[in-house]
Amino acid sequence: MADNMQLHVDENNIAHLKMNDVENKNIFSNDFIRGFLETMDELEANYKPHCLILSGLDSVFCAGAEKDTLIDLSNGKIDVKDLLMSERLVNTEYPVIAAMEGHAMGGGLVLALCSDIVIAARESRYGAVFMNMGFTPGMGTTTLLQGLMGDFIANEMMFTGKRFKGSELAQKGTNINYIVPKKDVLAKALDIALQISEKNVKSVNLLKYTLSAKKKKLLVDARLQEDMMHKLSFAYPETKERINSFYAD
């Protein structure tokens, strides 16, 4: 298993995957993406879980892309590949519960969008910060964020890059399942997972297949739109300047 991931399947056949790159704060480095996908491979090859609890660090659930990757994208050296993580979560046979104790920004928030049930912390901040770095949202954000936040809050998040505290989102009435104190996030996730684990696993898998059909289509639509926007926005000279400025702050 990758050093930056921790996987455990408990006695109730509930899988717990903790993104655990402490040094880099769960940034989407090549090693992080590889570790995530390899751990998902291991989970699906060796276990048939009832459901998956996806968590991160206490301070950061997941932080999105790293600076060097974004600079390479703006220079046209590489193509976007973190959408693979989105597709992997949407295409699981079992439901995924995102337990976001810490902050989730950009692509890190998208991992929650690709989950089936989402729990956030009142103290942590969540945002689609792509435009703060000069380029348009990716990983399926443009088609998936509305489902979690509602159309108008999603639009505000994407246009402004604002990071909302969980407590703010609770007041606005989003579609997040639960927004609780940080200390209660994992316990709430486990409570929901235990309820799922009591059900017929074959029926659970069948329901997941049906409920995920819409997100699968939305990801296909997102790939067409976002790839086109990325080719344009990453080519703007201002984008590289904004990326450097963002990471210097």
Score class of each variant (00 low, 15 high):
172 K>S: 08
208 K>Q: 06
126 Y>V: 03
219 L>N: 02
13 N>E: 12
48 K>N: 15
131 M>R: 15
160 T>W: 08
23 E>M: 09
46 N>F: 11
197 S>Y: 08
73 L>G: 08
9 V>K: 05
139 M>H: 11
189 A>P: 10
217 K>Y: 13
100 M>F: 04
33 I>N: 05
186 L>D: 01
89 L>A: 07
2 A>V: 01
105 M>N: 10
186 L>E: 02
107 G>E: 07
161 G>M: 01
14 I>D: 08
156 E>N: 13
78 I>A: 06
129 V>D: 15
56 G>K: 02
221 D>P: 06
240 K>D: 05
162 K>I: 06
25 K>C: 13
85 M>L: 15
116 D>N: 09
53 I>K: 06
56 G>P: 06
66 E>N: 15
135 F>A: 14
130 F>Y: 12
187 A>E: 12
189 A>G: 11
202 K>C: 03
64 G>Q: 07
75 N>R: 15
172 K>I: 04
63 A>S: 13
19 M>Q: 11
154 A>V: 10
58 D>R: 11
174 T>P: 00
166 G>C: 03
27 I>V: 14
3 D>E: 15
237 P>E: 05
206 L>F: 09
249 D>A: 11
248 A>V: 03
140 G>R: 03
128 A>Q: 12
112 A>Y: 04
124 S>H: 00
9 V>E: 07
33 I>D: 08
129 V>F: 04
122 R>A: 13
231 K>M: 10
249 D>Y: 08
23 E>N: 12
179 I>R: 01
18 K>S: 13
40 M>H: 02
223 R>I: 12
83 L>H: 07
208 K>H: 10
28 F>P: 11
3 D>T: 07
200 N>M: 07
55 S>F: 07
99 A>N: 02
130 F>W: 14
134 G>N: 08
78 I>R: 13
242 R>Q: 15
211 L>R: 09
97 I>M: 05
43 L>G: 03
